[in-house]
Computed example of a mutant assay.
Amino acid sequence: MEQRSRTHAPDHTTANLVLIFVNMIWIFLVVWGAFGLGAVAILGAFLNHLITRLEFRLRQHG
């Protein structure tokens, strides 16, 4: 069989983070328009809490 050298897969981390940011912005704008700035603040605090819990769990297992 012919030996082929494998190339590394491209790193799409930056592109994924930018797309997550763009999606969060438009979701926040829709929530702001529908329910007001208070709902956006609560949603942001909730997401911050989830990210902090995820970070804490990953540090415990890692």
Rank of each mutant, 00 (worst) to 15 (best):
F28N: 03
L19P: 00
I42H: 01
L58C: 13
T7Q: 10
I27C: 01
W32E: 09
H12S: 15
T14N: 00
T14F: 13
F46V: 07
H61L: 15
R59A: 07
V22M: 07
H12G: 04
I27L: 12
R6H: 08
H12N: 08
M1H: 13
A41D: 01
N16K: 05
N16V: 06
N23L: 03
F35L: 11
I42T: 10
E2D: 04
A9S: 09
I42F: 06
M24C: 03
T14M: 05
V40W: 00
A15H: 01
F46C: 09
F21V: 08
H8P: 11
T13A: 14
A34C: 13
A41F: 09
V30A: 05
Q3I: 04
L43F: 03
R53L: 01
A39L: 08
V22E: 12
N48Q: 14
P10N: 01
E55R: 08
G62E: 06
L54V: 13
N16M: 11
S5Q: 11
Q60F: 03
N16Y: 13
V18T: 12
L19R: 11
L43I: 14
L47T: 14
R6T: 10
L50F: 07
R59C: 05
R57I: 14
G36H: 15
T14C: 00
F46Q: 08
H61T: 05
Q3Y: 07
A34S: 09
A41C: 02
F56K: 08
F21Y: 06
F56S: 11
T13R: 05
T13H: 05
L19C: 01
E2N: 13
M24T: 15
A45Q: 05
R6S: 11
F21N: 13
T7H: 13
I25W: 04
T7D: 11
N48P: 00
T14G: 02
A39N: 04
F28W: 05
N48Y: 15
L58T: 04
V18C: 01
N48G: 15
Q60W: 08
G36P: 03
N16C: 12
I51W: 09
G38K: 06
G33T: 00
H12V: 07
I51H: 14
E2W: 11
F21K: 09
A45C: 13
I25P: 00
F21E: 10
R57P: 00
D11I: 03
L50Y: 10
G44T: 15
I42K: 15
H8V: 05
L29A: 14
T13I: 14
T52Y: 05
L19F: 02
M1D: 06
D11F: 06
I20R: 11
T52N: 11
R4K: 15
A45I: 09
T52L: 14
I51A: 06
L29D: 13
L43H: 01
I27G: 00
G36I: 10
A39D: 05
L17I: 05
A15R: 02
A15Y: 01
G62I: 02
E55C: 04
I20Q: 06
H49A: 14
W32H: 04
Q3G: 13
L47A: 15
S5I: 15
F28H: 02
I25G: 02
F46S: 05
V40F: 01
G33K: 01
G44Q: 07
V30R: 10
A41K: 07
L47W: 09
I20G: 10
L54K: 11
